[in-house]
Structures are given as C-alpha cells and as structure tokens.
Design a protein around this nucleic acid. Structure first.
Length: 433
RNA sequence: GGAGAGUUGGCAGAGUGGUAAUGCAACGGACUCGAAAUCCGUCGAACCCGUUUAUAGCGGGCGCGCAGGUUCAAAUCCUGUACUCUCCUCCA
C-alpha cells in the first residue's frame, strides 16, 4: 500500500513513477478524488458526532437532575439519522478508495531500469563459467527419468500436470540441497523457521498477494485458508499488527516450505520438467529492517543467495528488474538466473526484493525508535533458492556422458558421501533381515 | 465434532445503558554526590480529520477481539463472527 498523503501532496510524482508500472494517470486522479470525498464526508460526520457527544452529555446531566430532556432527545434522533446516512456513504467511498489503493503497485526505486518488460532489465554481473560439454547435454527431465529419480508420469496420474515424484537419490538430492541452504543461511544470521503452510486472507492481503492475485493461488473450499504461494507470506506476516523495539531490528528469518501456485495464465510454458510446478520447495529469506538500511540489506540478501550458487558451482547472472517486470510489492528486485545447459539460457532461480514500507503499511508492521516514535519497518524477501530449480540446474550442469550426475562437493556430506548418482545407486536396495 | 468460559491500555484487573476505576510498569520532576526507596505530577500506544512550515502545539473524531443492530446515548443489550482456554469425543 502506498502512502495516500504522499500521493495527495505529489500527484505528479505518483503518476510519473507508476507510469513505468503500467498505471494510468487517471488511476491516480481516481484515488485522489476518492480521498477528497472521503475526507469531506469524514469532516461532516465528525462534526455531527462531536455535537452528539456534547448534547448527550447534557441529556445525561438533565436526566440525573430529573429535568426534561425530550427536546434534545428529539433533536439528537435526527442527528443520529444524519450520522448513519453519512457513515453509510462514507463506508462506500472508503471501500472503493481502499480497493483502488490496494491495487496500486509500489513505487520503483529511482535507480531501477525503466521499461515495460524483462527486455529492459539490467544485467549487473555474470558469475561462473558456462560449462562446455563434449556431448549433447540432456534436459534435466530426461536425466531424471533415465536415472529413475524423477517420475512425472505417475505424478500426473495421482495429482495432475505440474507435479512430480522425486524417487530415491532424487529425493535425497532435494533434501541435501535444502538442508545445505538452510545451514548456509543460518551461518549468515537467519533464524530457521517452520511456518504454517496455509494462511488466512488477512495475511495474503498483508504481503500484497490479495486482492489482485487471487487467481494465482490454491484456496481451501469453504474456509478462509490459502496454500502459501511462498514462505514470504507467513514469514512477513509473523509481525503483522505489531510494534517492534528498534533494538530488535534487523530481524532475519529463513524457512523451507513448499510453495503452491496455480500457474493460471502459464499454460503451455515450461510444460516439462521441474521449472514450473504447482508445488515446489523453496528456501525463503525474509528481513525486517530500519528504512535507512534496507538497500544495504537488499545487497546483502542477494549476496546470501549468490553464495549458494557459488558454493554449488552453478553459473548464474544477476539482473535488476525493469520497473514493468517487478512484482507488485517490490521497489527494487535482483533476480538470480542460473544457467540451464539444455535450454542454453539463464532461468530465474531467486528473486530478492526490497518492498520498502509497502508491505509494512498494509500489514502494519512498525517499530518504536529511541524517542518513542513509531515508524513503518522495511521488509525484504528473497529466495535462497528455489529448490526444484536448483536440482534441475545441478542435474543439467553436472551431468556426465554416461547419464550419471556428479554431486557438487559441498553437497557430498549431505548425501552421506555419495559423489555421483548412477543407475546402480539411484534406488534403495533390499535389505535382508 | 459436542459442551462451557473468556477476549478491556505495555501488563494485571474493575466496570451490565449516561460515555473507561485501580494497581504495576513507563515517563517528567523533587529529594540525593549518585542510585535505590519515598513523594509530587503525567500517562490508552497507535490511527484518522482539521489547523500548521512542522513528525511541535491545539481542537475534534475514534477507541473495551472484529462486524452489524437496538437506543437520544452501548464496554454494558441483541445478532453474527474470529481467536484463546477447559472438559468430552476423535486423532498423527
């Protein structure tokens, strides 16, 4: 949620900034007009309420002295009716105002590249050498199915498209990857959390998924529960409607969780493999910080995600998203894209965003400074990393000509010493009693 | 799933129709070399509107889980709802 006072005082600034995010100037004029209506009605009803309060006092005194108050009561009956009418109108205006405000995206940061889509994003750096293969590299779904560690067919039978079973060493690799990530982030100062995987609408609203992106999620029928599309939602709403002490900041938390996404509107894209699933694991990082530190913290968080890729030896590049390509709540976003050999391209594997006070205003997450004054915190979130896509990247970048996959060194301890996944070791052996 | 109880300021806790007691904590001051204790004073944080250069001050609104309703007037009465706790049932 943007600050209406800032929009009211600088409408041109708001129009200019949001124009880069596909918001028409009329939408700004709309909210300003509604805001004016709202304040006008508020003034009227508050004047009447002030009158009601003073006259009610008089009535109360009169009654106590057993004097007649019928005249005032009759007068107040009318005032009461007027208040009710005004309040009804005010509620309507307020609803519309809130709805329109809730659909305006965050202001982009001044340094963000301006442009309508990903073609305008800025590449900040490339890290790691792109691997060269003496053979035709296979797609990760072929590697996985040939080794028998990924089973898309049976997942389709049991659940549907965009689901997968990880089998044997595949499951173990997934587990190794996220355990490694959690351990790394813990070393970097993040507290590990296991959050709820279903949240209520207020939480979805707080982090900005609702009201605009309801079609992107899975909701439980007849209950106010939504399967989380990212752990960002439960992690950021943890302090919803709270005032923190300045001394508590910054707060760093991390969580492994499944993420559930309906992928409405993605029909036909990435139909094979682990890239785009209805359910995938992700290790998420969230920070609550003081406003003046949020951009420094964003760089640190991006570094935390990069650290994972570097230790895994996966080539990637970092881009700063163009204004038109950023998510709704972000003021600035760095995407990490990992090299996928079979597609000969970089694919998103992490997205680290500074939401500034946009989520904090919606979710009312604040802190009290040394002078006792209350301010909104800044919130950041980043994937560190999407686990399924990391497994896909490992399978492809570490594949061998014989169909086996070498395990990156840092994961070997997490694989209990296994250095390579082969057809021979991919599955459980029968154990004689 | 069944039955009951509860939700009031940072915390504890009164208040069953006339507009939020009290205690603790906190803050300011006095005393003190300083602190503690004591005494005096302030105090529902936050939010909204108006006035304003102002995040100062002042005025008003709001404010008793949330949303409605009844009433001249609601913490108090009514309806719905969320959450917490206890017991029963069930359950990994």
């Amino acid at each position: 949620m943007l600050d209406i006072k800032r929009i009211r005082n600088n409408p041109d600034e708001a129009k200019e900034k949001l124009a880069t995010r596909a918001i028409k100037p009329e939408q700004i004029d709309d909210v300003i007009a509604l805001d004016e209506q709202r304040r006008d009605l508020l003034k009227q009803t508050e004047q009447l309420k002030a009158k009601r309060n003073t006259v009610s006092d008089a009535i109360s005194v009169a009654k106590r002295n057993h004097e007649d108050a019928d005249k005032q009561i009759a007068e107040m009956r009318e005032v009461g009716a007027d208040i009710k009418a005004l309040d009804t109108k005010l509620a309507e205006v307020l609803d519309e105002f809130n709805d329109k405000m809730a659909r305006l995206p965050n202001f982009p940061h001044d340094t963000d590249p301006v442009g309508p889509d990903e073609n305008y994003s800025r590449e900040d750096r490339k890290v790691g050498a792109i691997p060269h293969f003496d053979f035709e590299p296979k797609a990760h779904w072929d590697i996985g199915e040939d080794l028998g560690i990924l089973d898309f067919k049976r997942a389709a039978k049991v659940s549907g498209a965009r689901f997968v079973y990880y089998m044997g060493m595949g499951a173990k690799l997934e587990r190794a990857v996220y355990n490694f990530m959690l351990d790394q982030h813990e070393e970097e100062g993040y507290e590990e959390v296991i959050p709820p995987y279903m949240v209520n609408s207020a939480s979805m609203y707080g982090t900005g998924q609702f009201p605009k992106f309801k079609e992107d999620v899975f909701q439980i029928q007849d209950q106010d529960l939504t399967l989380i599309p990212t752990a960002e939602v439960p992690l950021t709403n943890y302090y919803r409607d709270e005032v923190l002490d300045e001394a508590q900041l910054p707060v760093y938390v991390t969580a492994l969780s499944p993420s559930f996404r309906s992928e409405a509107g993605s029909a036909g894209r990435d139909t094979r493999g682990l890239i785009r699933m209805h359910q995938f694991n992700k290790v998420e990082m969230v920070k609550y910080v003081k406003p003046e530190e949020s951009y420094k913290e964003l760089e640190k968080m991006t570094g935390n995600a990069e650290n994972i890729l570097q230790k895994l030896g996966l080539p990637y590049h970092v881009i700063t998203l163009a204004t038109g390509d950023m998510s709704f709540t972000a003021a600035e976003t760095h995407d990490l894209e990992v090299w996928i050999p079979h597609q000969e391209t970089y694919r998103e594997i992490s997205s680290c965003s500074n939401c500034e006070d946009f989520q904090a205003r919606r979710a009312q997450i604040r802190y009290r400074d040394a002078d006792g004054k209350v301010h909104l915190v800044h919130t950041l979130n980043g994937s560190g990393l999407a686990v399924g896509r990391t497994v896909a990247a490992i399978l492809e970048n570490y594949q061998n000509e014989d169909g086996s996959v070498t395990i990156p060194d840092v994961l070997v301890p997490y694989m209990h010493g296994v250095t390579k996944i082969t057809k021979e070791n991919a599955h459980a052996k029968h154990v004689e009693d």
